[in-house]
Design a binder for these strands. Sequence first.
DNA 1: ACCTGAACACCGTTCAAGT
DNA 2: ACCTGAACACCGTTCAAGT
Lengths: 206, 206
Amino acid sequence: MARPLTPLISIDAVVTAALELIDESGDFSLPKLAKRIGVSQSSIYNHVSGREEILELVRGRLLEESPLVVAADAGWEDVLREAIRVYRGSFARHPRTAPLMVMQTVRDPQAIALYERIAGALEAAGFEGADVASAIAMIDSFALGSALDLAAPGSVWEAAQGSSPALGRAVESAARLGSRADAAFEFGLEILIDGLRLRHERANHI
Amino acid sequence: MARPLTPLISIDAVVTAALELIDESGDFSLPKLAKRIGVSQSSIYNHVSGREEILELVRGRLLEESPLVVAADAGWEDVLREAIRVYRGSFARHPRTAPLMVMQTVRDPQAIALYERIAGALEAAGFEGADVASAIAMIDSFALGSALDLAAPGSVWEAAQGSSPALGRAVESAARLGSRADAAFEFGLEILIDGLRLRHERANHI
DNA sequence: ACCTGAACACCGTTCAAGT
DNA sequence: ACCTGAACACCGTTCAAGT
């Protein structure tokens, strides 16, 4: 077969197939992607520049599924809280995407817009230049880390044996808790917001 | 050549070569590792079970280089602060190892000991079961995320263009700051400790 | 016990050839 | 413009063969 009358591949189909493969196995490869779409491996390069672009398109797909909505008059804490929830939530529905995004430069416009929203909220709150950057870096670390926690449940905990009593007790409690990762995230989110508010109040001598 | 009188490979040499390759290129492969040691690819499997074990040995090497020292009577905040600094610092000297550790189960005894120390400090402070687990998960997220920030400087920031004014300003300030990642880490560390202390005080009605 | 070379089943990307 | 098949330069792991 050569060029068909109507294209066999759409970018949408590529992204869907990639996401399916990641959800199922934690990874995807061009050969498997091609097989799933029912097309040859090399033909994918007619629609997409390569593996990296496919991953960035997957990122976009994740964010499409969970838009950020906050009231126009919401305080900076609420904007932050919701933005972080959206960011982490977009990974939560497809946890195994998180590790693959780790070293990938963010280019997706919706992701950039989310960061811009956070930066804007911090500026409006009165945080200054470098502190805005630091706060975003911290938020980013936290959200990504929490997403990774979903993808690798018990990565650390698994190793806790008799020689680690305190760690062992923590594991046990967490297991009883059911959804450890979710609880850890909400716990961490409040800690983070509290910490930022405290610093904010100090800086403004409230 | 067959079996030599004195072994051509030591585990130490494997770890050293792997770490060198990671520092130089951000990754390592068995073929390159073998070439660097001056040995055949397959012979490495006589000393090590495979790629995963090599990575875990690298983790151990990193922690050996930065032991945790805290005064015996140190408060839980100080233990936490120092443990997090050690964890993150062990990656800071070899930033490009961080992404490779992301999805790897922690088995190195020194790493486990570090987690145990943190769990013990949180317990002693009066945090309860599930909260200890949540706090550790958060600390873990934060430390790993900060380490990743070192490996991928400007991963997000790069994309900030005219359409993202607040993000742009944050980037600019951070650039002027010089070592953005270090500043972000110390900023985040204080936020985190403050947040935990606040929750701790509330729980204990201080 | 420790090394070698060959083999196996995978990768991502390129490119000439087809229509 | 869009697809194919072959080719290239890589992977990690296994295994029979050597001493």
